[in-house]
Design a protein around this nucleic acid. Structure first.
Length: 893
DNA sequence: CGTAACACGTA
DNA sequence: CGTACGTGTTACGC
């Protein structure tokens, strides 16, 4: 096959992409613009796929100064300054190119065009076929039988192919004559004036009539009319234009076409950069391309191998024998539903080697095999590797009572190594860490007579592939964790915690259906009353749940003062509405706020009612691999955001009750755990003595900051230092503090200074956390849990400052998560070793909820207090407060 | 039908 | 122009 070279004009195409895609739609969560990167790489991917080049190179402009601007200072002089959102994107494009192992080049004092011209000339001479992708029409002069220009017509997705014929058809001149034509016509965007009144048609006519530009100029006298006059006036200009638009084909370059062979892409780098850019679909497109390309090669260098795991049969009655034949860690994949209390498993796949897996269908097992499998699953001495062990536990619960002996959970491991990722799909991890594509090759879709069977086959193969990749993947991830010193956190805290969480979810928390239903009715009634009143206040009906319609009412109809600006206009959030009420006193606002309150509460109650299981209990799912700080989160339903701040909201907590046959609910929470961790991490003398003194923290701090004695601290002083203390852990600014406390920025700033004067250790600690993270690239909790913060060195201020706040918060929030997780392990273990029936139900970040069995009140409370307070040895005591009651509300304190 | 934007609940 | 989450609604684009 003839070698085919694809050359891209980097800046010109990036710029086209930038204007083709909306900048605000392509932005990372950190605020970085990526539209040009996305458009450029997408275009490049399409080109590579469609054109199948053997060589690829990209040329960039080196800077504003070129030999052309030296001779013609006005060249490109009218260009506007580069748009702010475009800046920096070229650097990102280069990073992606690096990951794709595509060479790029720029050369001082030359334009990308000259590199293009040199490469294409040289390549054509060497017998290559050349594709030139550029948005600069000057490159048309390079077109010949071996060189085709791809010129963007609409955005960057549609490219027109300029062959010699196409150039001639469009401009009426042969490619090598194009610069003659362009010299006459001029180019506004490059600040090159042409002959006034002469457009492409006239210019082409002349060039054809006289044969070349030189001849046109020599014959200028003979051209009649106004245009002839204009031409004679601009002879020098046209000559100069022709000098400028001549591309150099003999620039001395370090990289030449032979150096541009297509290489394997760097999978890891590609993932890294796409993670950063938050490109999901583009990543998948490239991965798919990679797979397609890889299949054609026999290269093992990082290529994803299509997994072809052999599905093995185990004869009936021989499962026990097979299961006990090895103590090798076994990959375990479960097909079924891994939801708490309603889980089911249909099939499981087991595999200790990449080549083969045993798949069994549970309801087809003989009694003996079924027993053997159950025993094997629950035998901790048979090591298992699972992706999401908690889901497997739920899926298998009704079959075997769960699963024991899980020595590796690849989802959990991936989360600990890269806590900032959105998800940890096994397919992705497999491609990324063991270069194995586990998606089964789809069975021939057409011409097949038994499609139903194929579907089942695919599902089976997928399951087998999943199990078969696990041992290798676990090994790779173990190495990642070990490199990051996360092995202890993984094996001694997170893996054991999975089992505790699975049991908590399985047990669920009992609710009083009657109570919740009547609350629902109450909130519904309250809401409709408020709605009615709101409509009366404005004399019409609107959808009170629509911020858009509310904006119309408030700012158009009622002409109220504008609130804080948001993307879609002005905010109607509660704080602003309350503010507006103070200013206008309009009753609509009051009714609206009331409506919002009761609808929100009604939604919460209805959500709960919908999730009550047949056993009369609510089974939440605790997400162990979501929060980047190491916290748990709760979904389906979220039981970590049940209202507590208002009296009406608290009534919902009365609906969570102690289950039948049990005695009480016990809630236990850490008081001020984040400030205690701050004291421990900062080793600030003042803060440490505050906690050791056992005084009310905020009074103590207030006394120090304001220079008074503790009993002289007023409530105002207390609330100020309280806000300050809490804000510290979030990277609070003077501006933010002033806004929260409704004081001037100056006042807030003074407060911060006073605070830091008295608690210098805190200030030093906060500074050092950021500084350290900047050098190491990550923050660390007490247990060594890491959070990586590449943005700390970003050029983008918004991104950088955001990363700094994250760096301040992550060790505090994350260490608090470490502490309570340790406490949960302790409480669970102690309940078991004491043979209690009491059990953990919920965790709400700094609080544990326990259901206490009859007669266990005293010992359960003692265990909870001891295990929580003693979870870790810090420089300050961990204070725990406990309450009990028949429902969550009454158990609170 | 899926996703973004908004608003709001918790620690 | 303080962190970390999840959910329900509306609006809008495919």
């Amino acid at each position: 096959m003839r070698p085919r070279l694809l050359i891209i004009d980097g800046h010109s195409m990036a710029f086209r992409a930038f204007f083709a895609l909306p900048a605000d739609k392509f932005m990372t969560s950190g605020g970085a613009y990526t539209n040009a990167v996305h458009g450029f790489i997408s275009m490049l991917a399409t080109l590579i796929k469609n054109e199948q080049p053997t060589h690829v190179g990209v040329a960039f402009d080196a800077g504003a100064h070129t030999f052309r601007t030296e001779v013609f200072p006005q060249y490109k002089g009218t260009r506007d300054a580069t748009p702010e959102p475009f800046k920096g994107q070229v650097a990102l494009i280069k990073e992606v190119l690096d990951a794709m192992n595509i060479r790029y080049l720029e050369k001082d004092r030359f334009e990308a065009d000259d590199i293009l011209a040199t490469w294409s000339t040289c390549a054509a001479e060497a017998g290559m076929e050349v594709l030139l992708c550029s948005g600069d029409r000057d490159t048309l002069q390079l077109v010949n039988d071996h060189v085709t220009v791809l010129y963007p017509v609409k955005g960057v997705s549609e490219l027109k192919r300029y062959t010699p014929e196409a150039v001639e058809e469009k401009y009426g001149v042969r490619p090598e004559q194009y610069p003659d034509l362009a010299a006459l016509v001029g180019e506004t965007s490059d600040n090159i004036p042409g002959v006034p009144g002469v457009g492409p048609k006239t210019a082409a006519k002349w060039v054809n009539q006289f044969g070349s530009l030189t001849e046109v100029l020599n014959s200028a006298e003979t051209i009649k009319g106004k245009v002839g006059e204009k031409l004679r006036d601009h002879l020098d200009q046209v000559r100069q234009n022709r000098e400028i638009n001549r591309l150099l084909t003999d620039v001395d370059l370090d990289v030449m076409p032979n150096d541009l062979t297509v290489q394997q892409w760097d999978r890891n780098k590609l993932h890294e950069i796409f993670d950063m850019l938050e490109f999901r679909t583009l990543r998948e497109r490239l991965l798919a391309m990679m797979g397609a390309v890889d299949q054609g090669t026999h290269d093992e260098g990082g290529a994803a191998q299509g997994a072809s795991t052999q599905i093995m049969e185990v004869a009936a009655g021989e499962l026990a024998q097979w299961l006990s034949s090895t103590r090798q860690p076994m990959g375990l994949a479960v097909a079924g539903k891994g939801v708490p209390s309603r889980g089911t498993a249909w099939q499981i796949a087991l595999s200790a080697t990449p080549e083969s897996a045993v798949v069994v269908t549970l309801d087809e097992l003989s009694d003996a095999d079924s027993v053997a499998l159950r025993q094997w699953l629950m035998d901790p001495h048979y090591p298992k590797i699972v992706h999401s062990a908690k889901e497997a536990w739920h899926a298998l619960h009704s079959f075997s009572g769960g699963v024991k002996g899980v020595i590796a959970d690849t989802e959990l491991a991936a989360y600990l190594a890269f806590p900032d990722q959105r998800s940890y799909g096994l397919e992705d991890l497999s491609i990324r860490y063991v270069s194995r594509d586990i998606t089964p090759v789809a069975h021939q879709a057409q011409g097949s007579l038994d499609l139903g069977l194929d579907d089942t086959d695919d599902a089976l193969r997928a399951l087998a592939n999943r199990a078969a990749v696990l041992p290798q993947l676990a090994q790779a991830l173990d190495a990642e964790l070990s490199d990051r010193s996360l092995t202890a956190l993984y094996q001694e805290m997170e893996l054991p915690l999975t089992v505790v969480l699975a049991q908590m979810e399985h047990v669920g928390v009992a609710v009083d259906l009657e109570q919740l239903r009547s609350l629902d009715a109450f909130f519904a009634h309250q809401g409709s009353e408020a709605q009615k009143a709101a409509f009366e206040a404005i004399g019409r009906q609107v959808n009170l749940g629509s911020p858009k319609q509310l904006q119309e009412v408030l700012f158009d109809q009622l002409d109220m003062p504008k609130t804080k600006k948001i993307k879609t206009g002005y905010t109607t959030d509660a704080a602003s509405l309350a503010d507006l009420f103070v200013k206008t006193g309009h009753p609509f606002l009051q009714h609206l706020l009331e409506y919002r309150d009761s609808t929100k509460l009604r939604q919460t109650v209805e959500g709960l009612l919908k999730s009550v299981a047949d056993d009369g209990r609510v089974h939440t799912t605790f997400q162990q691999t979501v929060a980047a700080t190491g916290r748990l989160s709760s979904t389906d339903p979220n039981l970590q955001n049940i209202p507590i701040r208002t009296e009406t909201g608290r009534r919902i907590r009365q609906g969570f009750v102690v289950g039948e046959g049990l005695d009480t609910l016990l809630t236990a929470d850490y008081s001020q755990i984040e400030m205690r961790i701050m004291a421990h991490l900062s080793q600030d003398d003042g803060l440490i003595s505050a906690f050791q003194a056992g005084e009310d923290l905020h009074n103590f701090v207030g006394a120090r900051v304001f220079g008074v004695s503790i009993d002289e601290v007023t409530p105002q002083m207390r609330s100020k230092v309280k806000a300050m203390s809490y804000g510290l852990a979030y990277g609070l600014s003077a501006f933010g503090l002033s806004k929260q406390l409704n004081i001037s920025v100056g006042e807030a700033s003074t407060l911060m200074d006073d605070y830091f004067t008295r608690f210098g250790g805190v200030r030093d600690y906060l500074t050092s956390v950021v500084a350290r993270a900047r050098t190491t690239g990550y923050t660390e909790t007490i247990m060594g849990r890491r959070r990586y913060l590449p943005d700390l060195t970003s050029d983008n201020r918004q991104r950088r400052e955001n990363a700094e706040r994250v760096a301040l918060n992550a060790p505090i929030q994350g260490s608090a998560a470490d502490v309570i997780k340790q406490a949960m392990l302790g409480v669970d273990a102690a309940f078991r070793s004491e043979g209690l029936s009491s059990r953990l139900l919920l965790q709400i970040h700094d609080e544990l909820i326990v259901e206490v069995a009859p007669g266990e009140q005293e010992i359960a409370e003692r265990i909870v207090r001891e295990e929580m307070a003693g979870a870790m040895q810090l420089s300050v005591p961990l204070a725990v407060s406990v309450g009990t009651g028949q429902n969550w509300h009454d158990a609170g304190h």
